[in-house]
Design a protein around this nucleic acid. Structure first.
Lengths: 245, 245
DNA sequence: CGTTAAGTTGACACGACTCAAAGGCGGTGG
DNA sequence: CCACCGCCTTTGAGTCGTGTCAACTTAACG
């Protein structure tokens, strides 16, 4: 079974067998982290490049009055700090949200890999740009939409991103986040997150069974959420059929 | 007089005379664009790499109900679309806000420059990471703070970023943006932006004289705004004295 | 079966949006 | 030099979304 890194990068850049072998090699000997564990804390200087193989992690910042802002979700196949070694110190922290398997790759190893294959170098750039695009999408979401639409948009994004690494079925995915964690990413109170979720369920835009989120009508949810799949740069351009069902 | 690109990059990475000459070369023959002109529109595929030399531009997305979300301010020294040629198409548009001088650099030229000097390559990476950090900072600003604090935070950011390219004095800078443009970046109505500005002036956190913003007490404004200069990765680490007064 | 974390509910306060209209300011042309 | 015009800024009033506080219910786990 291919690593999520290969699954993801292959959707943006075409890789040959040699590239894939090199990438798989990077993900050997992952380290296991319990849920809610800091991987690196604001102010530290990262020494390794980290890569999520299993589970969900997040970038976050702590603010006054005990508030926490989650500024990114790190899913399988996502780098935590590719090239951040260039900056003096972390401007945010990274923590696991669920139980995670993380590959820890020496920064030097990354540089070797980049110079060994221009396709891999390109793939890493692509991943960086996709992350940046996601960040802009979040910015629009937080700035311009109200609670229910925000939450719906987040669900659409998670659906497609998880789908990209074969972690979602055609109409559902597992979401192991608490309402408080959702509220920290959308910048709303957890009470309001709860009410927003109730609203979405009442309108049957989503159906929640335990920790799995089912989307009865993806078109309808995406329309409600003003969600444009293209902006993730990794979703099908014309139809909604993913590469690996 | 050095180009803003050199001024900016030199604060993150040490460059030698040869690097500087190469960078200056990139900024020859800029093109002039009137205020409120689209440079590139969502969906297009960029052919050139653009660089702001004078004026202020922005990244933006158009949304339903005629709303516009500004997701980044592009100041002198900022790249518009470094490496975005890797992605299929633009997921946002770029437009000037004021009269601008823009350098248009063939993508191939960028690649040549990067391979000619590892220091320049590093400097470009650094700039990309700084942009990403700014994006995260905006995310926190939009998600977690209320109107007046948001606006104060934006002013702090603009102050330091303009200072970086010698476009701000010790306690003031020129802000040629309308209240509507400010409101589009902070995700609030222009009416509310107006009231928020009145509040800041009443508290003498800022003094506005025409288009110049004066900050009587930077410490006080930054404290009010929860602004942490370090997060721009380009401001002094310990004291608040900039490199070029 | 007790304990703890997560989810749910209600009441109230306030920030922010909307609509609508009036005032200021800088341009342009007569 | 003044009148006009358009764009930006400012104001007011009413509505609605969201935050806060506090208590209660449910689920998870040993």
């Amino acid at each position: 079974m291919p690593s999520p890194l290969v699954l993801k990068l292959a959707k943006g850049v075409s890789l040959d067998a040699g590239d894939i072998a090199i990438l798989e090699e990077l993900t050997r000997n992952p380290v296991r982290f319990e849920a809610r564990t800091d991987l690196i804390v604001e102010g530290e200087k990262p020494t390794h490049v980290r890569l999520v193989l299993e589970g969900i992690a997040c970038r976050y910042k702590l603010l006054r009055r005990g508030r926490r802002a989650i500024v990114a979700h790190l899913l399988p196949g996502d780098f935590c700090d590719l090239h951040v070694t260039i900056l003096g110190q972390m401007d945010h922290s990274i923590a696991t949200l669920t139980l995670c398997l993380i590959a820890e790759i020496p920064a030097q190893k990354i540089n070797e890999v980049i110079s060994s294959s221009p396709r891999i170098a390109r793939a890493f750039w692509w991943a960086t740009l996709v992350d940046e695009g996601t960040l802009r999408e979040w910015l629009v979401n937080l700035g311009q939409r109200r609670g229910t639409v925000q939450m719906a948009h987040l669900f659409c994004e998670l659906y497609w991103r998880l789908r990209l690494v074969d972690m979602a079925t055609a109409d559902s995915f597992v979401l192991p986040l608490t309402q408080e964690e959702l509220s920290d990413t959308l910048g709303m109170s957890s009470v309001h997150a709860n009410r927003v979720l109730q609203q979405l369920r009442e309108d049957t835009l989503v159906v929640m069974q335990g920790r799995t989120v089912r989307i009865p009508d993806l078109e309808r949810l995406q329309d409600f959420a003003e969600f444009i799949p293209n902006n993730l740069h990794s979703t099908p351009k014309t139809d909604a059929k993913p590469a690996n069902g």
